[in-house]
Amino acid sequence: MTGRRSAVRIALALSLAAGAAGVSGCGTSGGRWAQQVMASRAADVGAARGFNAADVMFLQMMVVHNGQGVELARLARGRAVRAEIGLLAGAIAATQRDETASMAGLLREWGQPPTAPPDEHAAHGGMPETDAREIASVADAGPADFERAFLNAMIAHQDDAVQLAAAEVSGGLHPGVKALAGRIEASRRAQIERMLALLED
């Protein structure tokens, strides 16, 4: 259990104990729950415009997740890694920056919050972001351990992205977002395959 999540859980428990209304079985807290209702209603309205709550949640979560992936990818800069790993890390950072920009733009266009409320990530909305702790431990890895630590962390990170993307492919409404999710799923799966092969080499 990380400190961050513990803190989130405590905050959540406190807000629920304070008598805020919660969604049965979803553990959302009062203020954020109200925000979620507003977002969902916006998404209800959005359904007429061609998107649903799953699209919004996916975009909000991928913006955060991709950002952490870029942070992780950048750790390979200047480290003694095989050329292919350096190129892969650079390409991951560049492509995910692009994706993030277009996803954030879509949320703005739809009038939706750029990210889900923090509690939603822990209590409601999907996969964890790669922990700051994990990023720090990769950053701190010595030369002999760096490649393996980096590849393992990136594999785990992109495996979470596959889960988010697959959920959007099946639960989303907006064709453009679903297509993006399909490309994210495909590219992350391909990256994982390559990284697993690099671990074996």
């Binding site: 969902s40 949640m57 909305g125 999907g126 996969m127 959007e168």
Partner: peptide, 8 residues
């Protein structure tokens, strides 16, 4: 609205 979202 929410059932299709990736609640976890």
């Amino acid at each position: 609205v929410l059932p299709s979202s990736p609640a976890q």
